[in-house]
């Protein structure tokens, strides 16, 4: 239960950060979705029974605050989570490079899903220049900062577990 509250707390922080702080900073205008690394973290480092409900909560929340069609974020996070769980059966995700690739692929998957929805909505036949630029920038951001975020989540989780363990033993 404590872990669930902790995950919800992290999600709230990330959502607030990327809807209020990032839009005010020009350099972060095309930053990737901060919750995608969190979904990857849940997929890589947490058991499925813990991660899966959280992924659904996250998707539902993001669908609520975004102007995207309802279900887009749930779909994105669900497939991201499933994909990560599948990938970690073959890859050793302990090192920075592999994590970078996993996060970059996750962000690419999210961009592809989102852009596909836009393409369906607007009936466009070819990928516009801006979409490629935005996608590439997001992936580059993800390559360099994504694994750091994963390590940060891992660190915070360990700290929280240690603190809670100590609290219970007292």
């Amino acid at each position: 239960m404590m872990t669930l509250f902790f995950h919800i707390f992290i999600c709230i922080i990330l959502i607030i950060f990327q809807t209020t702080v990032f839009p005010g900073i020009r350099i972060f205008n095309e930053f990737y979705d901060l919750l995608a690394p969190f979904v990857i973290y849940l997929g890589v480092f947490r058991p499925t029974r813990e991660g899966f409900p959280m992924v659904l909560i996250l998707g539902f929340t993001m669908d609520g605050i975004s102007g995207s069609p309802l279900g887009l974020y749930i779909t994105t996070y669900f497939w991201l989570f499933i994909g990560v769980q599948w990938v970690i059966q073959f890859l050793h995700v302990g090192n920075f490079l592999i994590l970078s690739i996993v996060v970059a692929c996750g962000i690419a998957l999210e961009s592809i899903i989102h852009f596909s929805i836009i393409a369906i909505q607007t009936s466009i036949s070819e990928i516009p220049h801006f979409a490629i630029i935005t996608g590439v920038r997001q992936i580059l951001w993800a390559v360099f900062t994504g694994p750091l975020l994963l390590y940060l989540f891992l660190f915070l989780q360990k700290k929280m577990s240690a603190w809670y363990g100590g609290f219970l033993s007292d």
């Binding site: 809807t19 209020t20 205008n29 919750l35 605050i65 102007g67 989102h114 935005t134």
Partner: peptide, 14 residues
């Protein structure tokens, strides 16, 4: 205005 859309693909505000 208290928030903006988390996705660069969609343009909404809260």
């Amino acid at each position: 205005v208290i928030g903006k859309d988390p996705s660069p693909w969609f343009k909404t505000i809260i």
